[in-house]
């Protein structure tokens, strides 16, 4: 994954916030995701035209109790999955 990559949110995807997370719904495929709080924060940051590297650093700041390497690894997988399923677009 390129850390400088920037994404935008796919406008066809329905984003609905819950108290402690959010749903992503693809009306075309029926694919439905529940994002927990950190997933929701990451998704929204990606929509603010920030590159992956910046999002990783912001998440490391937000979650100081979690090992930075774990955040980086998990976040890369998460972003890859969102991109593969067209929840976010390059």
């Amino acid at each position: 994954m390129e850390f400088e990559k920037r994404y935008r949110l796919n406008e066809e995807i329905v984003f609905r916030e819950e108290d402690d997370g959010a749903f992503l719904f693809d009306p075309d495929s029926g694919d439905l995701r529940y994002l927990n709080q950190s997933g929701k924060e990451t998704f929204l940051m990606l929509g603010e035209d920030q590159d992956v590297n910046t999002v990783i650093h912001r998440m490391i700041e937000l979650y100081p109790d979690v090992e930075p390497q774990k955040i980086e690894g998990d976040l890369k997988d998460f972003v890859k999955d969102l991109e593969e399923n067209r929840f976010i677009l390059v």
Partner: peptide, 9 residues
Amino acid sequence: KPYGRRMRA
């Protein structure tokens, strides 16, 4: 997933 769950159709 660490960031959420997929609810399969």
